[in-house]
Amino acid sequence: MINGNDPLIEIENVTILHNGLKVLDSVSLTVSRGEFTAIVGPNGSGKSTLVKAVLGLIKPDCGKIRVFGVPVDQLHGQRSRIGYVPQIFNIDLNFPISVLETVLMGTYGRIGVGKRPKTEDKAAAMAALEKVGIADLKDRPLARLSGGQRQRVFIARALADQPELLVLDEPTTGVDMTTTGNLYSLLRELKNDGVTIVLVSHDVGVVASYIDTIACLNVSLVAHCRPDEEVCSRALTDMYGSHAAYFHHSDTPHIVVEEHPDA
């Protein structure tokens, strides 16, 4: 069942133009509460744009988006219910800031402008750091972390305020396999806690076993389906012009996209 009866994100006929070109073409998509959705598609398919529209960072030229049943531009105080892990290369990685300070920022929206974080906010930030397993690095400057550690910091920041909705934009870019594996088990844990997760990925090497639905995006929505459905692998094949297949080894099936030899 794809459209559950408790929708958390409702995207209705959203069209977004950039310099007169359609980046997104009448996309409609519903994500139910507690669902784990992966948005996949090739570069330039509008994945990040869609996510930014859902977060209210980009205003759609056409269509409506509601999150928690509220139009996204009227979320105001409810924004702190959203956790967001942005693409890492948008950030100045030499910024003079410590790990704990960075994670604490995840609580600033709720604390409010002009107010100081309290002891419990710091405790929440520490708990988030523990959850991603880098509590021992709390005083380390951000500039002195490895790519994987840094990624965990930004995930901890998104978790600091215990979000109901977690949005991750390409969280595995430039991160080693171990970190990627840890990330996916963390996401599974969060899903079990009832967090709604939207994961954006440009490669389809996504662990499929705990994803509920895949939204295949290529400017318009190509397919929205369960990962084991026939329509899904067909959509992936169409989109990438290559063979998309599942590999079921151990208990973590991967979707793998292989380049056509003649492509």
Binding site: I82, D92, I97, G109
Partner: peptide, 27 residues
């Protein structure tokens, strides 16, 4: 001094500030 943490936030990561409801534009 009053907006210490908020100005720090928008300087570091303006987009994230906006997502969490900090008025990044006005700051």
């Amino acid at each position: 001094l009053v907006l210490y943490k908020d100005l720090l936030f928008i300087t570091f990561d303006s987009e994230m500030a906006e997502v969490t409801g900090v008025p990044a534009g006005r700051l």
